[in-house]
Design a protein around this nucleic acid. Structure first.
Lengths: 334, 334
DNA sequence: ACTCCATCTGGGAGCGCTCCCAAGAGCATC
DNA sequence: GATGCTCTTGGGAGCGCTCCCAGATGGAGT
């Protein structure tokens, strides 16, 4: 405890140079003679010098800190592999950086308010946000403060500033198309759809892709949850007992639909083929294992990080939107 | 951009007091007259003053920042609801605080090294660690630097400094007992166990509880993964084709075991009852839904935070170990 | 030998805050 | 009216860093 950590002054003294030169070496300026640089690096190594972040931030007025806001009500939070994969991707991309990742999970409006108050230049350099709902005020708030921001999931076209929000999303429309086309190629003729909520871009786009191939005769809507999937399936069976395939716009809804189908005596996939959306690992344990449109969550996380870093570097008006590919993962249910 | 954020000097000037008094109000010192306090609070409110964290940290030599290190190799990382629940608990408890939560996910040794270098007083005030493996060097490293630390999961008794590491864990032994007792109460007679790895405290304790009730005639070991569960189940069936119940020390292992059992023509739960450990939501979609020992992950996260805050406050030599209760969640597989 | 420029260097200033000391104010006691 | 106490206050000092300016150095050009 007696010996405190070395400061840059200590390093400079030991290297026999001035504070300025030592600082230049630490920050990788090119305006330093090779001899001076070598001496400073040697001193740093010997002393085990680590720059004091607070002091640096005080003068540079940056924080080297990026917020990851996961804004989702209640239980769904994080329980879905969707979030897990994205967080993993972000974290691994961030690990290549000087940046710290500050985590905030928002599930109540009190937490939302507190987080909103925190998201200022004072505290973070930029914000990554996993937010599903169109009515979340946080993105606009962050945007208004001029903080760099990247969303996960395309904002709805109806959103006033949807056009200028940088985001990363899966190619939901193509995913929906892939599912529908696959079912069609299997020779299925009465193909139904349990669509997602139409106040979310993902819900809209997945249905749109499906509709392009199959049409929208047999569509019921859910909210991505298992329960809503079950309920929609009941309605679909009621409308068309002879249906021979279902595309559900999320894996949980697919699980709910399968439960209802089995209870109604349908064999999967013989009588009714089922395709989900997410490609979640949980689909491997269902009975039968769930065929599903896989979205590369980890890659999405990495892309989000990349977009944010580009904004922070501030070179060019960077590309604002990244769409990553989906692919059909075929298991047992179709 | 022209108008910069107000400093405490601005606040003091506006309130007609000195900088010191303003600072005292901001930091809640009692040594301030009511009149002065009111004036300062008014000024703060009018100016929208927010203290500059970097400047404060520079002088207080604290960071108001806590690291959450999730140290787990490869894919399992975060994909299990186990992690998700704990993170949620930590995050919600931390939201009550001034503290920031810095997230680091460690899956390669390079990342481990980088994180280790970062975990100093310079950067964080304390560390929360979700680490499963006995040979992880990070806890000892953090401990050696005198940083407050709370682990999730009891260190192995063989670990040199296991005794002094504060931790939170589920009552794994009781959980194992609950599962075994339940199977026994169902009238099962040939009860097998797919145990976890014996280099992890959770693996040891769950088996120990099971063994107390059933004995250890029929035990095979896995590593908590689905594949290992399947392999162990094959071995068990080979040793005792007449077994009528299985306790698996993790849900993924239970899924693997169920797959093998079904392939071997056993009906679940009629021929063989299966109980898992985790109580993961995924168990609801398996066929049949998995009966499992539930561990209250969210509560564990909250407890970890509580222990760390107590250490940071540094009042008393705080209680170092918290064991939370498990409970059997009965679904369809047993 | 002189100027001129490019390159490199040292160190003053100051970021916004808390700590702490000395001094002022108010009051009771001698 | 002087003394001693407590409560409150203002502001100097300094945390460790980067920014920036002025000066030193050295080689090229005249």
């Amino acid at each position: 405890m007696t010996e405190s950590r070395p400061t840059i002054e200590t390093v400079a003294a030991r290297a026999g140079v001035g504070r300025g030169t030592a600082s230049r070496v630490v920050n990788g300026s090119s305006q330093v003679s090779p001899a001076a640089r070598a001496a400073v690096l040697k001193a740093i190594d010997e002393l085990g010098y680590v720059p004091n972040r607070a002091a640096r931030n005080l003068v540079t007025r940056r924080t080297d800190c990026v917020a990851l806001v996961i804004s989702e009500p209640g239980d769904r939070l994080f329980s879905e592999p969707y979030f897990a994969g994205i967080v993993r991707g972000i974290s691994s991309a961030m690990a290549q950086t000087q940046l710290q990742l500050w985590l905030s999970m928002v599930s109540s409006s009190a937490e939302r308010e507190r987080t909103g108050r925190f998201l200022t230049r004072e505290h973070v350099d930029g914000v990554l946000m996993l937010s599903q709902h169109a009515d979340d005020p946080l993105p606009a708030q962050v945007r208004a403060r001029g903080l760099p921001l990247v969303l996960c999931g395309q904002p709805l076209a109806s959103d006033p500033d949807a056009g200028e929000m940088p985001f990363v999303d899966a190619d939901n429309a193509t995913g929906g198309r892939q599912a529908a086309q696959y079912l069609r190629d299997l020779g299925r003729r009465r193909i139904a759809c349990v669509a997602g909520p139409q106040d979310m871009a993902a819900g809209v786009a997945r249905l749109e892709g499906f509709r392009e191939v199959v049409g929208d005769e047999l569509v019921e809507y859910g909210d991505f949850s298992e329960e809503s999937g079950a309920k929609a399936m009941v309605a679909l069976l009621d409308r068309e007992p002879g249906l021979d395939a279902v595309f559900a716009a999320s894996d949980p809804m697919a699980f709910g639909a399968m439960r209802v189908l089995k209870a109604a005596g349908r064999r999967i996939p013989e009588d009714v083929a089922v395709v989900g959306f997410d490609g979640s690992p949980g689909g491997r344990h269902s009975d039968p294992p769930l065929t599903s449109v896989f979205q590369p969550t980890e890659e999405m996380g990495r892309e989000m990080t990349r977009l944010l870093l580009a904004q922070l570097a501030g070179d060019q008006p960077v590309e604002a939107q990244v769409i990553v590919e989906t692919r059909l993962e075929i298991r047992g249910s179709a």
